[in-house]
């Protein structure tokens, strides 16, 4: 679904990433991990067509996003930004409806079917009750759910998310990742994740970015190791199986503090 070959990208005059090779198959949820400033957001923005490709190639469902119009690109891949600033009192429903823009005819307006699709997406992310609220006055987590609903309403096969759980509570986070797993069945999901253990529980495949390139990449069980994690994050980590049997003993990381508190 997503294939990057020797990709180099960045913004302005600075090159942030180079030599990125990556492929995400249909049906997969791929986690994008790495320390702060590793280039996770840059990679997602490049895939979304917001930043130029400096070298190499990008293919989403076999197509080059740079060769498509903004509208076609939005029908191919939907993005959830890390954060958004709403400077005016647009309602949350209006913001979610924006996901339907790429499906409108050039002079058409949002119809009842679009409203229904937007409301369905809002119900799926648990924010339908906010429909008439001004989006500049809801909490960060609530706005995040509206933005995820917007991306779902966009009805694209590929979802690109930039730390979507950053301002969500625990219940909303697990609900979101359950939703992403269900969505991956019709395409692919590439998601920057801050929380290592969350990524290990939900992602089929992981990509670790560090120092402007891919430090490790592969199926979760193969790359989620003490060696790789220690190398990428530069702190000592221990990896062990998840205690709940329904996870199939998914690997979970525990970091080892240099100065642990004393225990009786």
């Amino acid at each position: 679904m997503i294939r990057l070959e020797n990709l180099a990208c960045g913004h302005g005059r600075t090159e942030v990433l180079r030599g990125v090779n990556l492929s995400v198959a249909r049906g997969e949820v791929c986690g994008l991990l790495g320390p702060n400033g590793a280039g996770k957001s840059t990679l997602l923005k490049t895939l979304a067509g917001l930043l130029p490709v400096r070298a190499g190639s990008v293919r989403i469902a076999g197509q080059d996003p740079a060769a498509l119009s903004a509208r076609e690109r939005a029908r191919l891949a939907a993005s959830v930004p890390q954060r958004a600033e709403v400077p005016f009192p647009l309602t949350c429903l209006t913001v979610a409806l924006m996901g339907r823009y790429a499906h409108l005819s050039p002079l058409g307006n949002y119809g009842p079917a679009d409203r229904e699709a937007a409301l369905d997406a809002m119900r799926a992310t648990g924010c339908a009750h906010l429909a008439d609220r001004p989006a500049d006055a809801v909490s960060g987590g609530e706005l995040q759910r509206v933005l995820i609903a917007r991306a779902l309403a966009q009805d694209a096969d590929v979802l690109l998310l930039d730390e979507p759980a950053a301002s969500l509570d625990l219940a909303a986070t697990t609900a979101l990742f359950d939703l992403l797993r269900a969505r991956a069945a019709r395409g692919a999901v590439l998601c920057a994740v801050h929380d290592l253990n969350l990524a290990a529980l939900y992602c089929d495949r992981l990509v670790f970015l560090k120092d402007g390139t891919v430090a490790a990449e592969g199926p979760t069980d193969a790359v989620f190791t003490e060696d790789v994690l220690g190398r990428v994050y530069g702190v000592p980590l221990r990896v062990g199986p998840h205690p709940a049997p329904e996870t199939g003993g998914a690997p979970q990381a525990h970091f080892v503090p240099a100065t642990p508190r004393r225990r009786a």
């Binding site: 067509g49 903004a70 930004p81 958004a84 400077p87 924006m98 823009y101």
Partner: peptide
């Protein structure tokens, strides 16, 4: 009014 990046994400030129 949400900004350029958001506009491009949903398919606006």
């Amino acid at each position: 009014s949400l900004g350029d990046d958001q506009a491009r994400m949903v398919g606006v030129d």
